[in-house]
């Protein structure tokens, strides 16, 4: 698959990942241009999460290539992998906040633990990141469990951007949120990505969200990218699977898993 924009920040070729007999990724080819935002859309169980976890290094692919800034990460040693991971920031679907730490320590975690920043400076940096995502300073000392789902997502976003990463990953950022809060999170993602000048990869099945935050969209189905193009082309892609997915039709080439 050819690049859609500038120099690719991430290049994925022939990526395969299986769990036993279950072949989840079956030869993914994908380019992520620097400074652009790509949304990978697709139904449940199509391999979106496995793809993002393979890129980040949480899963080891069976075969294929993932290059980040030209460095091959498949089979990379843990020490070198850690240097690559420093370029990443990630917002998890459930926020994945550390419930043993207050909000500000969650946001500052990457600064205090991986970059050895002194706690007072890290707190100031955490408060700055919290302000970018619209969180007040007065929740800094509260426990994550005291926050609503939307606020937890904001804290997760603040944590993802606090280290000023070059590449941001968003795993289903609007899942579980009401439409208004979903829109707020999308706008914060846009703002964060633009302020950092970061490259972004989002996996989602929320089309409204994908249209808001993405420059390019890729549809994944049965472990393969079946369409990839600018977000403006998605309504006249000429691809039946894309048409079925974006219009939410039950009849079409995409069959629900387990359905007869």
């Amino acid at each position: 698959m050819s690049s859609l924009g500038d120099t690719p920040k991430i290049v994925i070729r022939e990526l395969h990942k299986a769990f036993g007999e279950n072949r989840v990724l079956r030869g993914i080819d994908l380019d992520l241009p620097a400074g652009k935002s790509l949304a990978v859309i697709g139904g449940s169980g199509t391999g979106k999460s496995v793809l993002i976890k393979s890129i980040i290094g949480l899963l080891e692919p069976n075969s294929g290539s993932i290059r980040v800034d030209g460095d091959e990460t498949v089979g990379m040693s843990p020490d070198r992998r850690e240097r690559i991971t420093r370029k990443f920031g990630m917002l998890f679907q459930g926020a994945a906040l550390f419930d043993s730490l207050p909000v500000w320590e969650n946001v500052a975690f990457g600064l205090t633990q991986a970059r050895n920043m002194v706690r007072s400076d890290a707190r100031d940096a955490a408060l700055d990141a919290m302000n970018i995502v619209g969180l007040d300073d007065d929740i800094a000392d509260r426990a994550p469990a005291e926050l609503s789902g939307g606020m937890q997502k904001r804290v997760g976003l603040a944590r993802a951007i606090a280290t000023r990463p070059e590449i941001l990953f968003f795993d289903e950022p609007t899942t579980g949120l009401d439409p208004i809060m979903g829109s707020v999170i999308d706008n914060l993602i846009l703002k964060s990505v633009h302020e950092l000048g970061a490259t972004a990869l989002t996996i989602t099945h929320d089309m409204a969200s994908a249209r808001r935050i993405a420059d390019n969209v890729a549809l994944i189905h049965q472990g393969r990218i079946v369409w990839h193009g600018p977000v403006g082309d998605i309504d006249h892609s000429g691809n039946d699977m894309v048409d079925q997915f974006i219009n939410g039709r039950s009849i079409g080439p995409i069959q629900l898993q387990g359905a007869t």
Partner: peptide, 24 residues
């Protein structure tokens, strides 16, 4: 505690924050 961190992706979050879960 660690099991809850695993199923809520907190251990994955540690890795993305360049912190080795074994060490931490």
């Amino acid at each position: 505690e660690i099991g809850t961190m695993r199923v809520t992706e907190q251990i994955d979050a540690l890795t993305t924050l360049s912190t080795n879960p074994y060490k931490y």
